[in-house]
Amino acid sequence: MRLLGFITVVLLGGLLFHLSLDFPDLGDASSPAATHVSPYYIEHTMEDTSVPNIVTAVLADYRGYDTLFETAVIFSAGLACFFLMRISERTAPKARFYRHLPTGLTLRIEKGGKIPEDTREFERIDSVWVPYDVIITMTCRLVVPFIQLFALYVIAHGHHSPGGGFQGGVIFGAAIILYAISNNLRRTLRRMSERMSALFGSVGVIIYGGTGMLCLLLGAGFLDYRGMASLLGVDPVSARSYSILIVETGVGLAVTAVMVWIYYNLSSAGKQDEGL
């Protein structure tokens, strides 16, 4: 069976390599893409949309339909993780562990014992070994706001530099995941609950689809942002630029929420009680 698999991989890989010889060279000026497709975008993007970064314009405007469904795919990935992994039954664990923060003592409380309140002095910890390090916790707490600020910059500055909704959203989600890793899952869930991440995920997709529908209602085609000109009170070229920002915000919101949502389910095996 292994040999069969190996032969299949070698054959298919060899076929792939052989076919890739037909590809045009990197930077070949006479390839079909360089003669028909790219010149149009390079010449017309600035006057069509007033967006200097052509990649962003192609992603969110010319090929906005693709990106809409990419966002929907990411949302359904989050949904699939939720349906596969989430365990909703709340059976109380056999024993709970609490840490007395000023002294670092760990308490093990059996089922039915008196549970200390989650105060400044007592904090519930996971039953597997959890290191508690002030330096790591404080450093991550200091770094997280700056990462989030950078993520917002990446989303908002996608018109001029590399970046956009996907990258910014992933960075924003990574900041929240960093908080979850350096502190614990319960504390993160208190800041951003599962319900909130599900809501944000769907709202992001709705913002994108809603922008397209709004264009349709205002008399233009679906996702033809020129229709937004009368609503935004600007000329059609600026309207396309602004609408790209609206759409990218929706993408960023959806991607952030879905990344955090997947992490919640994955790191706690669906219980969302104790996690990494």
Partner: peptide
Amino acid sequence: VDVSFTEASVGAGVSTVFFVAA
């Protein structure tokens, strides 16, 4: 550069965290 940015954030960043969590 845009693809590189996405690869760095998604491939090297978040998906590694997902693997480690799994």
